[in-house]
């Protein structure tokens, strides 16, 4: 009796999972297969035999290690800058009047800028900060010559400046729910117990928000590490970042058989992202303890 009930329960639970099967299948096919292809191809040579040579080349060849260094550095600073300003902006918006114009403008603009993919941003930055850009000329007439100081829009710094343009909006989107989850009662309780404003943040606000903010910062890091559209539009991909090395290897404008090295570079990127996502998952578990 008891056993058949248990079996029935397990069956019901299995049946209730049926509702997510289409989603799981879809993701497995259209996200899983391209990634599996990259992983498999990374360990094959041009003739389809197993080799570790591609992965070794992708990790030791100076042009690739340099690209990884640049990509990681770019992701690091744009994610930290994006996170700091994103949290600040999101907090200012969350505390603004609900349903106000300001709030609608920021939330809709965040969505568009975070997901548009970087092509318009690249063009906007050329128009503003290119050699003959509007802002460049303004600053020049104000006595600040960016280009004489060594700035170039098609340098890594220039690209990073454009990346921040979608990093801040993405941070606003990611942390707004956490900021909205801060309950006014917590602050009131802290104040009733004699806490100062700083005391509240030190002992309640920051500890509660920290996992969510850190998790979002990791996503920003991954987002910048993965991004390529802006660089592609800005400098046609000719910059020492990992994605452009992958494209160059795939494009076959180097040696034959380089294709698989491109796939190995892709595998390296996926490994970095996987590590990132483990951290994100752990932080997310912590974040949902207080904020739902």
């Amino acid at each position: 009796m008891a056993r058949s009930r248990r079996v029935g329960g397990a069956l019901r639970r299995a049946a209730s999972l049926a509702g997510v099967v289409p989603f799981v299948l879809y993701v497995a096919v259209f996200l899983g297969i391209p990634l599996a292809t990259v992983v498999a191809g990374a360990f094959r040579d041009g003739a389809g035999r197993f080799t570790l040579g591609n992965v070794r080349a992708s990790l030791t060849s100076p042009q690739y290690t340099d690209a990884f260094g640049q990509s990681l550095l770019l992701a690091a600073w744009t994610s930290v800058v994006g996170a700091v300003f994103g949290v600040w902006l999101a907090y200012a918006v969350v505390t603004a009047r609900e349903g106000g114009v300001l709030r609608r403008v920021v939330s809709t603009a965040s969505g568009v800028l975070a997901y548009f993919g970087g092509v318009p941003l690249a063009f906007a930055f050329i128009a503003a900060l290119g050699q003959t850009g509007l802002t460049t000329r303004w600053l020049q007439s104000a006595g600040v010559d960016l280009y004489a100081a060594g700035f170039r829009i098609d340098s890594i710094t220039g690209i990073g400046l454009a990346y921040v343009y979608f990093q801040i909006p993405l941070m606003v989107i990611l942390v707004t729910p956490a900021l909205e989850g801060l309950r006014p009662q917590w602050r009131e309780a802290a104040q009733n117990l004699g806490a100062s404003a700083w005391g509240y943040w030190r002992h309640v606000g920051i500890p509660v928000l920290a996992p969510a903010v850190l998790g979002a910062t990791l996503l920003l890091f991954g987002n910048a590490f993965a991004a390529y559209a802006t660089a592609l539009a800005l400098v046609n991909g000719t910059i020492p970042l990992v994605p452009s090395q992958i494209q160059a290897a795939l494009g076959g404008n180097v040696l034959v058989g380089q294709e698989n090295v491109g796939l190995a570079l892709g595998l390296d990127m996926v490994v970095v992202i996987a590590a990132l996502m483990v951290g994100y998952a752990l932080l997310q578990r912590r974040a949902t303890r207080w904020l739902t």
Partner: peptide
């Protein structure tokens, strides 16, 4: 959330191979 961090260039590499 994965598509935010999975490089489109890697997706594209897999697809180009396919």
């Amino acid at each position: 959330v994965l598509p935010i961090v999975i490089p489109p260039v890697v997706m594209a590499a897999g697809m180009a191979f396919m």
